[in-house]
Simulated scan of single mutants.
Amino acid sequence: MKNVFKSTLIICLTLISLFINAQKRKNMENTALLIIDVQNDYFKGGNMPLVGAEEAGKNTQKVLEYFRKNNLPVINIKHIATNDGATFFLPDTKGAEINSLVEPKNGEKVMVKHYPNSFRETELLAYLQSKQIKNLVITGMMTDVCVESTTRAAFDLGFTNTIIGDATATRDREVNGQVVKAAEVQRSFLAGISALGNLYAQIVNTNDFLNGK
């Protein structure tokens, strides 16, 4: 009798798990992952290392694995600097290569941009529309430059955005001779972009996103 009860319990738990996973998958319909500028120059030894790049990269990797496992669209954005005086993401350099943590595979889409806004002079909008994407999960670097500008542009274009906050990173800034620490820059920009009831984007952390919260 105990064995029958145990077997029944296992079956029930399995069915519940399948139902939950199916619901999660349904909730992710018309959703794509956007990985912005997770490139070598932003990591230790690069020409523009960020604070917390490694942690943000690893969290992006976790989100990427979720999208791959569920066969959901993934788009890697790669910045190549073409402006005069640029010191990082230079053409044909190792620093401009996508970091190994999120290296594209299996035909995953890679788009090159030359401006902070990933939609500017790229095929991103046309590609998303061709795939009937309405929702974007956004990760990458830098939080207050390319991530923010892309997110705000995406909102203006009609997309619903979720930023994985701990899968983004930036660096110390300076204004009027005062240093603003990266952690403060990070908090401020994420707070601003999620103001007014998550107007531009909802901010979640990696674990909550992976657990469906």
Rank of each mutant, 00 (worst) to 15 (best):
residue 56 A to S: 13
residue 143 T to K: 00
residue 146 C to I: 01
residue 139 T to Y: 02
residue 183 A to G: 00
residue 100 S to L: 13
residue 36 I to Y: 06
residue 175 V to N: 07
residue 7 S to H: 04
residue 30 N to F: 12
residue 28 M to R: 15
residue 58 K to W: 03
residue 146 C to A: 15
residue 134 K to H: 11
residue 82 T to C: 04
residue 107 G to A: 05
residue 93 T to N: 11
residue 129 Q to K: 15
residue 195 A to L: 13
residue 164 I to M: 08
residue 133 I to F: 10
residue 59 N to Q: 12
residue 176 N to H: 10
residue 165 G to H: 02
residue 72 L to D: 11
residue 114 H to T: 14
residue 189 F to D: 07
residue 31 T to L: 11
residue 139 T to K: 01
residue 6 K to L: 15
residue 128 L to S: 07
residue 90 L to V: 05
residue 24 K to V: 08
residue 143 T to N: 03
residue 90 L to I: 08
residue 127 Y to F: 14
residue 26 K to S: 09
residue 53 A to Q: 01
residue 59 N to Y: 12
residue 172 D to N: 15
residue 121 E to D: 15
residue 133 I to E: 06
residue 24 K to S: 13
residue 139 T to Q: 05
residue 162 T to I: 15
residue 73 P to N: 09
residue 4 V to H: 04
residue 93 T to Q: 10
residue 129 Q to D: 12
residue 60 T to D: 00
residue 17 S to G: 11
residue 40 N to F: 10
residue 40 N to T: 04
residue 185 V to C: 00
residue 155 F to W: 13
residue 165 G to I: 06
residue 75 I to F: 13
residue 183 A to N: 08
residue 105 K to S: 15
residue 169 A to Y: 02
residue 77 I to E: 01
residue 21 N to I: 11
residue 108 E to H: 07
residue 100 S to N: 13
residue 25 R to G: 00
residue 89 F to R: 03
residue 33 L to R: 11
residue 203 I to Y: 09
residue 150 T to Q: 01
residue 53 A to P: 10
residue 5 F to Y: 13
residue 94 K to G: 05
residue 66 Y to N: 10
residue 200 Y to H: 11
residue 189 F to N: 12
residue 22 A to K: 10
residue 40 N to Q: 07
residue 132 Q to W: 00
residue 148 E to C: 01
residue 104 P to G: 06
residue 63 V to N: 02
residue 88 F to S: 09
residue 55 E to D: 04
residue 95 G to F: 14
residue 106 N to H: 10
residue 154 A to K: 06
residue 40 N to W: 06
residue 77 I to C: 09
residue 42 Y to C: 03
residue 71 N to W: 00
residue 93 T to P: 03
residue 185 V to H: 03
residue 81 A to K: 08
residue 182 A to Q: 03
residue 165 G to A: 08
residue 17 S to V: 08
residue 168 T to A: 01
residue 72 L to I: 14
residue 49 P to G: 02
residue 57 G to R: 02
residue 174 E to S: 14
residue 178 Q to H: 13
residue 161 N to V: 09
residue 38 V to G: 02
residue 91 P to N: 05
residue 99 N to C: 01
residue 156 D to R: 07
residue 183 A to Q: 11
residue 26 K to P: 00
residue 84 D to R: 10
residue 93 T to A: 05
residue 196 L to F: 14
residue 111 M to Q: 08
residue 103 E to K: 15
residue 161 N to K: 07
residue 78 K to M: 14
residue 15 L to V: 15
residue 92 D to R: 02
residue 114 H to P: 07
